[in-house]
Design a binder for these strands. Structure first.
Ligand code: ZN
Ligand code: ZN
Ligand code: ZN
Ligand code: ZN
Lengths: 140, 140
DNA sequence: CAAATCGATGATACATTATAGCAATTATGC
DNA sequence: GCATAATTGCTATAATGTATCATCGATTTG
């Protein structure tokens, strides 16, 4: 059983054959370091179709929304207009996008997380969420 | 003459009657502290129409794109799907969005800017651009 | 000054991403 | 197994933004 299927069970999200396939594909999407996973809906539909080509794009959209609202996956809107998805991780991370290759590098930085909380506080706010994306080109 | 009209002249961006109106509206959009300006295309078209109701939404789109590509204004994609605009400022700033009211608070923080450069460098990248948005609720 | 030229405009068609409606199918609880 | 409720696939629709194209208007050329 895939990691995401297990999380669905734990959270009481009903599973169907289609959702199980989408869960499997999402679970397998974890990027090895250096890759650029975080697939978009079309890419996911392609991967899903390799397992069962009768699953419609509408179901992919609906299931991703369901998983996202249940906190099982995360949606990102990088600079493209379309959403990209990844399985939720235990430890929060942010992203650096290689502007030349599109490669996505994940990073964790405690200092910048704390700094954001501090900035919000100074402005009189409690930080609820944040978006941090770095765009860069490889040093030579 | 509006601030943005002046910048157009300086950069050699050709001005028309329509563009002058849009430049004026954008120039007037600078938020006083506490406001939530950074208007979207529809809002801008509304404001533009008050001055000249024959200006089409297509021209607003085209002119905003032109101004943006010339570095005269900046486009932001907050969490809504539609773009919002503001005049470019001398000093770079980031945004905190009040999740309850939609209010947008601008802030400048040298430390977080430097930290981002440092993080990119550590990953082997030169930082070219970044997106930093804080979402929070007012402390009571 | 008139003609030719070139870019900008307005209206509309189209593209893209995503959601909504609905009949048919599937899963669930008894 | 049967009734009920949720889910699916298909398609239509919504929302945001871009492309097309005939027309307009400004500018240059002779
Ligand atoms: Zn973060
Ligand atoms: Zn990630
Ligand atoms: Zn910044
Ligand atoms: Zn701003």
């Amino acid at each position: 059983m895939s990691v995401i299927e297990e999380k669905c069970k734990k959270k009481g999200v009903r599973l169907t054959e289609q959702r199980r396939v989408i869960a499997k594909v999402m679970s397998d999407s974890k990027p090895t370091f250096g890759s650029k996973d975080h697939p978009d809906v079309d890419e996911l539909h392609k991967r899903v179709s390799l397992i069962d080509k009768r699953i419609s794009i509408a179901t992919v959209y609906r299931t991703l929304k369901l998983f996202e609202e249940s906190g099982i996956i995360e949606r990102h809107d990088f600079k493209e207009g379309k959403s990209r998805y990844e399985p939720s991780t235990d430890e929060h991370h942010d992203h650096l996008i290689d502007v030349n290759t599109g490669e996505i590098i994940e990073f964790v930085d405690k200092d910048i997380e704390e700094l954001q909380i501090k900035i919000a506080k100074k402005l009189g706010y409690n930080l609820i969420d944040h978006k941090l994306e770095l765009y860069g080109s490889k040093k030579k």
